[in-house]
Amino acid sequence: MAGIKIINLNKVKSGHHLLNNFCLLVNPGEFVMISGGKKSGKSTLLNIIAGFETYPSGDVFLDTQNLKRLSNAKRAELLRKTMGFIPQGFFLEPNLTIRENIALPGIFAGMPEKTLKERTETVAKILGVSELLEKRPKALYGSQVQRTCIARALLLDPPMLLLDEPTDSLDGPNADTVLKIVKLFQEKLGKTVLIATSDSRVAPYATKTVDMKGDIK
Protein backbone atom coordinates (compact mmCIF):
# COMPACT_ATOMS: atom_id res chain seq x y z
CA MET A 1 0.00 0.00 0.00
CA ALA A 2 1.30 3.42 -0.90
CA GLY A 3 -0.02 6.94 -0.54
CA ILE A 4 1.15 10.33 -1.76
CA LYS A 5 1.18 13.70 -0.05
CA ILE A 6 2.08 16.82 -2.06
CA ILE A 7 2.55 20.15 -0.30
CA ASN A 8 2.87 23.56 -2.01
CA LEU A 9 4.34 22.20 -5.23
CA ASN A 10 5.44 24.73 -7.85
CA LYS A 11 6.47 24.19 -11.43
CA VAL A 12 6.94 26.64 -14.27
CA LYS A 13 7.37 25.45 -17.86
CA SER A 14 7.93 27.70 -20.86
CA GLY A 15 6.64 30.68 -18.92
CA HIS A 16 3.43 28.93 -17.81
CA HIS A 17 2.90 28.46 -14.08
CA LEU A 18 1.65 24.87 -14.35
CA LEU A 19 1.64 24.10 -10.65
CA ASN A 20 1.14 26.94 -8.20
CA ASN A 21 1.33 25.91 -4.52
CA PHE A 22 -0.39 22.69 -5.53
CA CYS A 23 -1.43 20.32 -2.72
CA LEU A 24 -2.77 16.79 -2.99
CA LEU A 25 -3.40 13.87 -0.67
CA VAL A 26 -3.79 10.40 -2.16
CA ASN A 27 -4.63 7.70 0.36
CA PRO A 28 -3.47 4.11 -0.20
CA GLY A 29 -5.94 2.16 -2.35
CA GLU A 30 -7.60 5.20 -3.91
CA PHE A 31 -8.40 5.61 -7.62
CA VAL A 32 -7.60 9.23 -8.41
CA MET A 33 -8.44 10.95 -11.67
CA ILE A 34 -6.35 14.04 -12.36
CA SER A 35 -8.34 15.93 -14.93
CA GLY A 36 -7.70 19.10 -16.87
CA GLY A 37 -7.23 20.52 -20.33
CA LYS A 38 -4.08 20.79 -22.39
CA LYS A 39 -1.12 22.37 -20.56
CA SER A 40 -2.98 22.23 -17.26
CA GLY A 41 -0.01 20.41 -15.72
CA LYS A 42 -1.56 16.98 -15.16
CA SER A 43 1.11 15.05 -17.06
CA THR A 44 3.83 17.19 -15.46
CA LEU A 45 2.40 16.32 -12.05
CA LEU A 46 2.52 12.63 -12.90
CA ASN A 47 6.11 12.98 -14.16
CA ILE A 48 7.11 14.73 -10.92
CA ILE A 49 5.52 12.00 -8.79
CA ALA A 50 7.30 9.36 -10.90
CA GLY A 51 10.61 11.19 -10.39
CA PHE A 52 11.18 12.10 -14.05
CA GLU A 53 10.93 15.86 -13.60
CA THR A 54 12.37 18.12 -10.93
CA TYR A 55 10.51 20.90 -9.14
CA PRO A 56 11.85 24.18 -7.73
CA SER A 57 9.86 24.23 -4.51
CA GLY A 58 7.39 22.17 -2.53
CA ASP A 59 7.46 18.66 -1.12
CA VAL A 60 6.37 15.30 -2.48
CA PHE A 61 6.00 12.53 0.08
CA LEU A 62 5.72 8.91 -0.94
CA ASP A 63 4.31 7.26 2.18
CA THR A 64 6.49 9.00 4.76
CA GLN A 65 9.54 9.63 2.57
CA ASN A 66 10.20 13.08 1.15
CA LEU A 67 11.48 12.47 -2.40
CA LYS A 68 13.55 15.66 -2.33
CA ARG A 69 15.57 14.50 0.66
CA LEU A 70 16.56 11.16 -0.84
CA SER A 71 19.72 10.61 -2.84
CA ASN A 72 19.25 9.97 -6.58
CA ALA A 73 19.97 6.26 -6.18
CA LYS A 74 17.63 5.81 -3.19
CA ARG A 75 14.87 7.78 -4.90
CA ALA A 76 15.18 5.70 -8.08
CA GLU A 77 15.08 2.48 -6.04
CA LEU A 78 12.04 3.63 -4.04
CA LEU A 79 10.15 4.70 -7.17
CA ARG A 80 10.98 1.48 -8.97
CA LYS A 81 9.62 -0.59 -6.07
CA THR A 82 6.58 1.59 -5.51
CA MET A 83 5.31 2.61 -8.93
CA GLY A 84 4.32 1.11 -12.23
CA PHE A 85 4.19 3.85 -14.84
CA ILE A 86 2.25 3.58 -18.09
CA PRO A 87 3.21 6.47 -20.38
CA GLN A 88 0.89 7.96 -22.96
CA GLY A 89 0.54 5.91 -26.12
CA PHE A 90 0.93 2.35 -24.77
CA PHE A 91 4.28 1.92 -26.47
CA LEU A 92 5.80 -1.53 -26.96
CA GLU A 93 9.28 -2.09 -28.36
CA PRO A 94 8.59 -3.46 -31.88
CA ASN A 95 11.77 -5.56 -32.06
CA LEU A 96 11.25 -7.34 -28.76
CA THR A 97 8.82 -10.18 -28.22
CA ILE A 98 5.88 -9.68 -25.87
CA ARG A 99 7.74 -11.75 -23.26
CA GLU A 100 10.76 -9.42 -23.50
CA ASN A 101 8.55 -6.34 -23.46
CA ILE A 102 6.79 -7.44 -20.29
CA ALA A 103 10.10 -8.46 -18.70
CA LEU A 104 11.83 -5.09 -19.33
CA PRO A 105 11.34 -3.62 -15.81
CA GLY A 106 12.66 -6.85 -14.29
CA ILE A 107 15.68 -6.84 -16.63
CA PHE A 108 16.51 -3.24 -15.68
CA ALA A 109 16.02 -4.10 -12.00
CA GLY A 110 18.44 -7.03 -12.28
CA MET A 111 15.87 -9.69 -11.37
CA PRO A 112 17.22 -13.27 -11.54
CA GLU A 113 16.34 -14.95 -14.83
CA LYS A 114 14.27 -17.78 -13.34
CA THR A 115 12.21 -15.44 -11.14
CA LEU A 116 11.77 -13.08 -14.07
CA LYS A 117 10.46 -15.87 -16.31
CA GLU A 118 7.97 -17.01 -13.66
CA ARG A 119 6.82 -13.48 -12.87
CA THR A 120 6.44 -12.63 -16.58
CA GLU A 121 4.28 -15.67 -17.14
CA THR A 122 2.20 -14.92 -14.04
CA VAL A 123 1.35 -11.34 -15.02
CA ALA A 124 0.78 -12.38 -18.64
CA LYS A 125 -1.73 -14.97 -17.40
CA ILE A 126 -3.50 -12.44 -15.16
CA LEU A 127 -3.84 -9.99 -18.06
CA GLY A 128 -4.83 -12.71 -20.55
CA VAL A 129 -1.83 -12.40 -22.89
CA SER A 130 -0.12 -15.74 -22.12
CA GLU A 131 -0.62 -17.10 -25.62
CA LEU A 132 1.05 -14.01 -27.11
CA LEU A 133 4.36 -14.21 -25.23
CA GLU A 134 6.49 -15.28 -28.21
CA LYS A 135 4.83 -12.90 -30.68
CA ARG A 136 5.94 -9.42 -31.73
CA PRO A 137 3.87 -6.30 -30.96
CA LYS A 138 2.79 -5.90 -34.59
CA ALA A 139 0.82 -9.17 -34.30
CA LEU A 140 -1.33 -7.74 -31.51
CA TYR A 141 -4.75 -6.18 -32.01
CA GLY A 142 -7.54 -4.56 -30.02
CA SER A 143 -6.83 -4.19 -26.34
CA GLN A 144 -3.94 -6.71 -26.37
CA VAL A 145 -1.36 -3.89 -26.60
CA GLN A 146 -2.89 -2.09 -23.63
CA ARG A 147 -3.11 -5.30 -21.59
CA THR A 148 0.55 -6.05 -22.38
CA CYS A 149 1.57 -2.57 -21.20
CA ILE A 150 -0.40 -3.02 -17.97
CA ALA A 151 1.26 -6.42 -17.47
CA ARG A 152 4.65 -4.74 -17.91
CA ALA A 153 3.77 -2.06 -15.34
CA LEU A 154 2.68 -4.76 -12.88
CA LEU A 155 5.72 -7.00 -13.33
CA LEU A 156 7.48 -5.80 -10.17
CA ASP A 157 4.16 -5.84 -8.29
CA PRO A 158 4.18 -2.14 -7.39
CA PRO A 159 1.53 -0.91 -4.93
CA MET A 160 0.85 2.12 -7.13
CA LEU A 161 -0.03 2.55 -10.81
CA LEU A 162 0.41 5.83 -12.69
CA LEU A 163 -1.26 6.16 -16.09
CA ASP A 164 -0.85 9.11 -18.43
CA GLU A 165 -3.83 9.55 -20.78
CA PRO A 166 -4.55 5.79 -20.92
CA THR A 167 -7.76 6.13 -22.94
CA ASP A 168 -6.41 8.70 -25.38
CA SER A 169 -7.06 7.52 -28.96
CA LEU A 170 -8.86 4.37 -27.74
CA ASP A 171 -12.37 3.58 -28.90
CA GLY A 172 -15.19 2.93 -26.42
CA PRO A 173 -14.81 -0.84 -25.86
CA ASN A 174 -10.99 -0.72 -25.62
CA ALA A 175 -11.10 2.24 -23.22
CA ASP A 176 -13.63 0.36 -21.08
CA THR A 177 -11.43 -2.77 -21.07
CA VAL A 178 -8.41 -0.80 -19.87
CA LEU A 179 -10.35 1.04 -17.18
CA LYS A 180 -12.07 -2.12 -15.93
CA ILE A 181 -8.72 -3.92 -15.61
CA VAL A 182 -7.18 -1.01 -13.68
CA LYS A 183 -10.28 -0.73 -11.48
CA LEU A 184 -10.07 -4.45 -10.74
CA PHE A 185 -6.48 -4.07 -9.53
CA GLN A 186 -7.51 -1.14 -7.34
CA GLU A 187 -10.49 -2.93 -5.80
CA LYS A 188 -9.19 -6.48 -5.47
CA LEU A 189 -5.49 -5.92 -4.83
CA GLY A 190 -5.67 -2.52 -3.15
CA LYS A 191 -3.41 -0.79 -5.67
CA THR A 192 -3.35 3.00 -5.59
CA VAL A 193 -4.18 4.35 -9.05
CA LEU A 194 -3.45 7.80 -10.44
CA ILE A 195 -4.73 8.63 -13.92
CA ALA A 196 -3.96 11.91 -15.68
CA THR A 197 -6.63 12.41 -18.31
CA SER A 198 -9.01 14.82 -19.95
CA ASP A 199 -11.36 11.94 -20.82
CA SER A 200 -14.66 12.06 -18.94
CA ARG A 201 -15.08 8.27 -19.43
CA VAL A 202 -12.61 7.77 -16.55
CA ALA A 203 -14.73 9.70 -14.02
CA PRO A 204 -17.19 6.87 -13.10
CA TYR A 205 -14.26 4.63 -12.08
CA ALA A 206 -12.53 7.20 -9.86
CA THR A 207 -12.97 7.46 -6.11
CA LYS A 208 -11.50 10.97 -6.17
CA THR A 209 -11.22 13.58 -8.92
CA VAL A 210 -8.69 16.40 -8.92
CA ASP A 211 -9.37 19.19 -11.40
CA MET A 212 -6.20 20.92 -12.55
CA LYS A 213 -8.21 23.49 -14.59
CA GLY A 214 -5.64 25.34 -16.68
CA ASP A 215 -6.77 24.66 -20.24
CA ILE A 216 -4.39 27.21 -21.71
CA LYS A 217 -4.81 27.27 -25.49
Binding site: N47, A50, G51, F52, A76, R80, F85, I86, P87, Q88, G89, F91, L104, P105, F108, A109, R152, L156, D164
Partner: peptide
Protein backbone atom coordinates in the same frame (compact mmCIF):
# COMPACT_ATOMS: atom_id res chain seq x y z
CA UNK B 1 8.63 8.83 -31.73
CA UNK B 2 7.83 7.98 -28.14
CA UNK B 3 7.46 9.44 -24.69
CA UNK B 4 10.83 10.81 -23.63
CA UNK B 5 10.54 9.16 -20.23
CA UNK B 6 9.82 5.74 -21.71
CA UNK B 7 12.96 3.98 -20.52
CA UNK B 8 12.94 5.72 -17.12
CA UNK B 9 9.38 4.54 -16.65
CA UNK B 10 10.68 0.99 -17.03
CA UNK B 11 13.29 1.57 -14.34
CA UNK B 12 16.34 2.02 -16.55
CA UNK B 13 19.34 3.44 -14.68
Amino acid sequence: SRNKYFYQSLGAS
